[in-house]
Amino acid sequence: MIATTLYLIIYSISLLMLVSLGLAIIFGMMKVINLAHGEFMMLGAYACVLCVNAGAPLWLAFAAAALAVGLFGIVVERLIIRFLYGRIVDTLLATWGLSLFLVGLVTTVFGPQAWSISARFGNVSFGGMNFSAYTFVLIAISIGMVVVTWLIARLTTVGLIVRGTMQDATVASGLGVNRNLVYMGTFGYGAALAGLAGAVLVPITGASPSLGLFFVAKAFINVIIGGHLPLIGTIAASSLFGTIDGFVSYVWSSVVGEVSVLIVAVILLRLLPLGITGRLRSGL
């Protein structure tokens, strides 16, 4: 019972971190609200399915999905986003339009049906209860994503430049940093994380044009409550909501789980309008 609850909570937290980290990085770094985040995930899911169907092993398909959607993100940044920095409502509209376009395009090209891959991971028995082995893979990838992002930001020169630009773009460019390049790279990295998330979800949800819709609301709530610091915010908000959702969904039901997450989100927004990390001046 306790082991199951713990497992469900950790799984729930990991799912939330997985689907919202890419969005949080783009929002936290550039104050761009990417409404096409869900569709980036959806593209990652299709990339993964295509790779697996072409005979690639699953881990390679994950990498390919991240890379492909990352490159796609860079193209989107160059063609659309870079003209709209500092205009939050305009980026909102532009990325919303992009998301509608992507859903339509994918439906036309791949059809409305969900696509599946046959990957067998089997299950793990513990205390008379079966657990899907793949959920442990998902938990590991989700934690890995956060750790790698933290390492890049903390230990590399690129990370230093990005953090500097994030704190004060004008000063950073005064010191010779190419701001455009940083923004482009950051957007691409956020998109790559979204693509990876979509690919990792394929064995659980399949790939369908509506995949993004199922997760984008959760990701947004998570990012808004997390606040402007992408890593700490994502970890904090995911842990909070994941714990509530995992526990309540198991003890009561999925409906009560969703309702309680929303209630807590509303109360928190009233108390902390800028999110959990809203008062923190520096950090990640």
């Binding site: 799984y11 079966n130 999925s254």
Partner: peptide
């Protein structure tokens, strides 16, 4: 008897309850 909103994709909690 359990009901699920149409956008629920995570069925891990109910699958655990079913097993219990």
């Amino acid at each position: 008897v359990e009901f699920f909103p149409l956008d629920v994709t995570n069925f891990a909690p109910v699958i655990s309850r079913i097993q219990s």
